[in-house]
Amino acid sequence: MDRLWSRDDPATVREVLDDLRRVRELAYTTVMTVMDNLHRKGWLSRQLDGRAYRYRPESTRPEYCARLMRQALDGSGDNTRTLLRFVERMSPADAEALLRALQEHPSSRM
């Protein structure tokens, strides 16, 4: 996902593989299987371009992270305690950003 999020345009398996090979050697079929699995799970969309598919993320990195955070919160069993523990571990800058976001978000106004 990182490789696709960092691109402006959709990418083929070969393009992602070439990018990944700068860091480590991988087989084409490995990358193809992962990208196909992500497509079947709804994380990637794809469009046929000649004989190859071009893949694009279905969500941005922030949207993906927010979904993971929502899943973690839903599985916590105690949203309030979980949120408090999360905030306790934030940097002062992150806590300030969260406070600003809460003040600006329409559903948080009372």
Results as ranks from 00 to 15, higher is better:
Y28M: 04
D9C: 07
G42V: 05
R61V: 11
R81T: 14
L17M: 03
P92M: 00
Y28S: 02
R100P: 08
L68Q: 11
L17P: 01
M69E: 12
P57K: 00
Q47T: 15
R89E: 06
D2F: 10
D94C: 04
S59Y: 10
T33W: 05
N37P: 03
A95Y: 14
D74N: 13
A93M: 10
E15S: 01
Q103R: 13
D19N: 05
T33D: 10
Y55K: 03
D9V: 15
T60L: 05
R100A: 13
M1A: 06
K41W: 15
V16T: 01
P92Y: 03
A27L: 06
L68P: 02
Y64W: 09
Y28G: 02
P57H: 11
A66Y: 10
T80C: 06
R61P: 02
A27D: 03
Y53E: 01
A11V: 05
T82N: 02
L48P: 03
R70P: 00
S76E: 02
A95K: 07
L20A: 01
E25V: 08
P106N: 04
S45N: 12
Y64D: 01
K41R: 15
D49E: 09
D94W: 05
E15F: 01
R14Y: 14
E58G: 03
Y53T: 01
R40E: 13
P62H: 10
R22G: 06
R7E: 01
